[in-house]
Every structure is written in C-alpha cells, then in structure tokens.
Nucleic acid binder design. Structure first.
Length: 427
RNA sequence: GGAGAGGUGGCAGAGUGGUCGAAUGCGGCGGCCUCGAAAGCCGUUGUACGACUUGUUCGUACCGGGGGUUCGAAUCCCUCCCUCUCCGCCA
C-alpha cells in the first residue's frame, strides 16, 4: 500500500511506476473516489459537531429544566442525515480500500527498466559448474533409481506435483534444512521462529499475497484460512499492528516452513520433478529494519543466502530483477539461481527483496523514532535462504557420480550421518 | 464441541446512559534537588482521519470487530472474534 498523500500529490510518478511493473492502472478511479471520500467526511463531521453541541445542551437542560423537545427534534433530523452519510462513507471507503490494494509498490530508482525476465541483469556468477566425463543424469532419474524420490507414489497420495522423499532422500532434505538454519543462526543476529503454516486473509493481505495471488493459494473455506505459500507471510505478520521501539530494530527472524502453491496454469515440461511443485520446504529470513538502512540490509540478506551455496559448493548466479519482473510488493529484488547440470539450466532457488514500507503500511508495523518521538513505518525485507526443492535438484545433479550415486557435500555429513547415497541407502 | 468468566490508553486497573479520550498506579518524557545517581517532589504523556488561517490550530472518530436502541453509548441489546477456567474429545 502506498501513502495516499503521495498518490494525491504525485500521481504521475506513481503512474509511471505502475506502468514499469506492468500492473493494472487504477489510479484515476482511486483519485476520484478519494475526492468523494473527503467530501463525505467533511459534511459528516460538520453535522456530528452540531449534534455533539445539541447533546450537551440537552444534558444541561435536563438538569436545569427547560423544553428539550425542539433540541431532540433537530438532533434526530441531523442524525438521519449523518446515518446516510456514514453509510455512503462506508461504501466509498470499502471501494477505496479494495482499489488501493491493487496499486503495486513502486520500483526503486536503481532497478533496471525492462520488459521481462530477459532484461534481468547478471550481478555475479559464483562457483564452478561441475564437469562430467559421462552424461549427467537429471534429478528425477537419480532420485528414482536410488529410491530416494518417488513421484508416482506421491501423486497417489496428493495428486501430481507433491514431493515424496524416501530413506536417504528424506534425511538429506532434513539435513539441508537444519544446516541452513544453523548457518543463519550462527551469527547470533537471527532469531529462529516456527510459525503457523496457515494464515488468515488479513495476514495474507498484510504481506500482499492477497488480493492478487488468491488463485495461487490453497484455501480452506471451512475455516477461512490459507495455506502459506511462503513463511514470509506468518513471519512478517508477527508484528502486524505493532509499534516497535527504535532500539529493538533491526529485528531478524529466520524459520523453516513448508510452502504450498497451487501454481495454477503451469503445466508441461518445466513442471517435471522438483522444477515446479505444489509443496516445498524453505528456510526463510525476514527483517524489520530502519528505513534508512533497508538497502544495505538487502545486500547483507543476499550475502546470507549465497553463503549457504558457497559452503555447499553449488554454482550459482545472482540476478537483479528488472522493473517488469519485480513482484507486486517489492521495490528491489535479487534472485539467486543455482546451476542444474541435468537440465543445463539455472534454477531460481531464492529471492531476496526489499519491500520498503509497502508491507508495513498494509500491516501497520511502525516504530517510534527516538528524538522526534514520531511514528514511522518500518521497512521489511525477506529472502529465501533457501528453498530446498530446486536446491535439491542442483545438489543431486552436481554431486552425482558415474555410478549414479550421490556424494554428500562435506558440510552436510554431520547432519546426514552418511557421506554417500547409493541404491542401498545412505552409507 | 459444551458451560462459565473476561477483552478499557505502552502496561496494570477504575468506570453500568450525559460535562469521559476516560480516575488511579506503573512506565516514558521534562524540570527541581544532587558532584553525579537513586529516592522524593512538580509538570507532562495516545492514535487515525479531515479542514484550513500549517498551529503547543480547529473538527471528527476510536474503550476487541461489526450492527442496533437512544437526542446522546466505554456503559444497554444483538452478533462475531480472541483470551482464561472447567468438562468432553484428542496427536
């Protein structure tokens, strides 16, 4: 959500941002409704003021004695008009609220302009792509031949697009999650959280999954709850509606969660195996920070995420998203893509975004500035650190041997308890 | 799921129809005292929206959310949500 005052005073700048992101431009309608709203408020407030005066007069005359009927009559008449105006105002504000939720965050000035993912800019590439003296298998061939991934049986349980890890595969997945959490917690800055994996529509609106992504989420109508598509939602909502002290900032959280995505409309080859699934595991980092620090915080968030890949020895590249590829709520975003030898493609395994005050406005997360004592919105950021499904693809494929087995990266051995995955299991 | 008790300012906690944005205490802020601090004393202390004469300004709203009764609601009624206690069920 943007500041209505800024939209009013600077509609052209806002309109340009909307266009750069390729979002629907509802600005004219928004401004018009805003105008109506203020007119209704002005008239209503004046009448309420009069009614309050009348009520006080009545109270006095009740004590002192006197004819209160004329006063009551005027108040009644005003009351009817007030009720009508209040009703009008409610309707207007509901429309205004709905409309304002469709206005995206504006891209930061440093974000490259572009028309799509082809205009994203390479920031850096790190690690070396593994070389094989045999034809590398993809993760599906590896996983199924080793008996550690079973997509056919998974679909028996939940339909297509859900993961079933078995034996050493399940252990490896768990090892990866624990390794990532421990790495992030090691610096002592992040606080680990374990949140609900479902969230209300208020929470979803606060982080801006709603209204835009409603069709991409699983929804439990009976209880009016959504399955979380990312831990960003519950973690950011921890402080919804709160006023934080400046001294408490920055606040860093990190936590594991499964993520559920309907991925409506995606079918075909790019959905094979783990490339696009309805459920995956992720370790998420969320930051609440002072506004003036948020772009520095974005850089350090990126370092925290890529540090995992450095230790795992997986080749990756960092892309800065262009304006058109930015998500609805983001002002700036880096994607981290890991190399898949089997697909011979880069796979998006993490996004690190600065939302500036956009989510904080929707969620009413503020802090009191020392010195001035004024309330300001915090800036929020989040980054995957990282999502395991695509990471698992890169890991299995990069660490395969010519015998079709998997070597476990050194840093994970103390988590798995084995160093090699063969058809007989972990050894 | 059933029964009961609650939800008031940053926190605790009064307030059962009118002058209540709300006593009191704690906390916070400022001052006095002090070499300094503590204690003590004095003062002060919310948010949102709207207006313009942009002000230590004016108006409106806010006592869990929504609705109702009334000239007037923190206070009465309805409803929803949440918390607590007991019972039931249960990993």
């Amino acid at each position: 959500m943007l500041d209505m005052k800024i939209i009013r005073e600077n509609p052209e700048a806002v309109r340009r941002g909307i266009r750069l992101k390729g979002e629907e431009d509802n600005l004219s309608a928004l401004l018009e409704i805003d105008q109506h709203r203020r007119a209704a408020i002005e008239e209503g407030d004046a009448l309420k003021s009069r009614r309050n005066v009348l009520s006080k007069d009545i109270a006095q005359k009740v004590k002192a004695g006197g004819d209160i009927e004329p006063l009551k009559e005027e108040s009644r008449t005003i009351g009817e008009r007030i009720a009508a105006l209040d009703e009008e105002r409610r309707t207007i504000e509901e429309r205004l609220r709905k409309l304002s939720l469709t206005i995206p965050n504006l891209p930061h000035s440093s974000v490259p302009e572009g028309k799509g993912s082809e205009d994203n800019q390479l920031v850096r590439t790190s690690g070396t792509k593994p070389e094989f003296d045999f034809k590398p298998k993809n993760h599906i061939e590896l996983g199924e031949s080793l008996g550690i991934l079973d997509f056919p049986r998974a679909s028996k349980i939940a339909g297509s697009g859900f993961p079933l890890y078995l034996g050493a595969g399940a252990t490896l997945e768990r090892a990866l999650i624990n390794f990532m959490l421990d790495e992030h917690l090691a610096g002592g800055q992040f606080r680990e959280v374990m949140t609900p994996f479902v969230a209300t529509s208020e929470a979803m609106t606060g982080t801006a999954q709603l209204p835009k992504l409603a069709d991409d989420m699983y929804y439990c109508s009976r209880d009016d709850l959504y399955l979380i598509p990312t831990a960003e939602v519950p973690i950011t909502n921890i402080h919804r509606g709160e006023i934080l002290s400046e001294a408490s900032l920055p606040i860093y959280y990190c936590g594991y969660s499964p993520c559920f995505r309907r991925e409506a409309g995606s079918y075909g080859k790019e959905t094979r195996g783990f490339l696009r699934v309805h459920q995956f595991n992720k370790v998420e980092m969320v930051k609440f920070v002072l506004p003036e620090t948020s772009y520095d915080e974005l850089e350090s968030l990126l370092i925290a995420a890529t540090g995992i890949l450095d230790k795992l020895g997986i080749a990756y590249r960092v892309m800065e998203l262009c304006t058109r590829d930015l998500s609805f709520a983001a002002a700036k975003c880096y994607d981290i893509e890991t190399w898949s030898p089997g697909e011979e493609k880069w796979l998006e395994a993490s996004s690190c975004s600065n939302f500036v005050d956009f989510q904080a406005r929707r969620s009413a997360i503020r802090f009191r500035r020392e010195g001035t004592g004024k309330l300001e919105f915090v800036h929020t950021l989040n980054g995957s650190g990282l999502a395991t499904s695509r990471l698992m693809v890169s890991l299995l494929e990069a660490y395969q041997t010519d015998e079709g087995t998997i070597r476990v990266p050194d840093v994970l051995k103390r988590y798995t308890g084995f160093g090699h995955i063969t058809a007989k299991g972990g050894q």
